[in-house]
């Protein structure tokens, strides 16, 4: 997992071409201004999803993992908490579905919390459980871009 501000994106250039493309995308005004929806960059290998939503309580959430795609989550506006925990010891709630590239786990009592403000990003590798879209202090409107990068 990586958690940083987009100003430091160049630090991560050595992690591979697809990650560099993903981070570079977030510097483009047209991407940050895009309306909610799915946008392809390199077919299904790299695409991004723009969402606007109100953050939700942590206790209503559950952890998710992907196995094929990495998530690069970037906050355009607003502020949200993303809870994270190691996969080991988590209780599976909904088994992995390869077609949807998604599995869910019960929230863990000892989750760590990342606070993402506008301009910050977090990268979750496959099998790294994360619970996005959570309240920091009170529910607020967030605009977020999630770049999905195929890793397999």
């Amino acid at each position: 997992m990586i958690f940083d501000h987009l100003d430091n994106a160049l630090l991560y250039g050595g992690l591979g071409k697809r990650i560099s493309i993903g981070l570079a995308l977030l510097n483009e005004e047209s991407v940050r201004d895009a309306a909610p929806g799915k946008y392809e960059v390199q077919g299904e290998d790299i695409f991004y999803v723009v969402d606007e939503y109100d953050t939700k309580p942590v206790d209503e959430g559950r952890l998710e993992i992907h196995r094929k795609y990495m998530d690069l989550q970037y906050i355009v506006s607003g502020c949200e908490c993303i809870a994270v925990a190691p996969l080991e010891g988590l209780v599976e709630q909904v088994p992995y579905n390869g077609e949807k590239d998604l599995a869910f786990y019960d929230a863990a009592p000892s989750m760590s919390r990342l606070i993402l403000k506008a301009g910050m990003f977090a990268i979750f590798w496959p099998n790294e459980p994360h619970m996005p879209c959570r309240i920091v202090e009170k529910s607020e409107r967030v605009k977020k871009i999630v770049v999905k990068i195929r890793m397999e």
């Binding site: 709630q93 949807k100 998604l102």
Partner: peptide
């Protein structure tokens, strides 16, 4: 409608195998 149209539905209950 959750900001975008939902693609999937998942159902979970303790003691049962969840699904989506």
């Amino acid at each position: 409608f959750i900001g975008q149209q939902a693609r999937w539905i998942s159902v979970a209950k303790e003691g049962y195998a969840g699904t989506f």
